[in-house]
């Protein structure tokens, strides 16, 4: 593959780096408690929490590093951090 002239790159390539393997704890979203406030999406440093068609959070576990901010900041305590089984 030709290298980007002057060490340049086009968008998209960072997704090749799957940071999900960094995780020790996994956020599990308890949809019954969710008020669809969007806080988890807003605070996620990975930008890997999306909302589905019903406005409920969906995580891309390929990238979630398990930092726990979503669980910590969720006003409805609708995210549980569970130990990842490796």
């Amino acid at each position: 593959m030709a290298m980007g002239l002057g060490c340049t790159a086009r968008p998209g390539r960072s997704r090749e780096n799957k940071t999900g393997s960094w995780r020790v704890f996994r956020p599990v979203f308890v949809h019954e408690k969710c008020t669809r406030c969007g806080m988890c999406t807003t605070v996620c440093p990975e930008g890997c929490i999306m909302e589905d068609e019903e406005g409920l959070p969906v995580t891309d576990y390929d990238y979630c590093k398990g930092c726990g901010l979503c669980a910590e900041e969720c006003p409805s305590e609708a995210v549980e951090m569970t130990k990842e089984e490796k």
Binding site: M3, G4, G6, C7, T8, A9, R10, P11
Partner: peptide, 16 residues
């Protein structure tokens, strides 16, 4: 959009 001026690890630096 293009990103200019990335950093290069030892795997790439010499080639640039």
């Amino acid at each position: 959009p293009v990103s200019f001026g990335l950093f290069a690890s030892p795997d790439y630096y010499m080639e640039f």
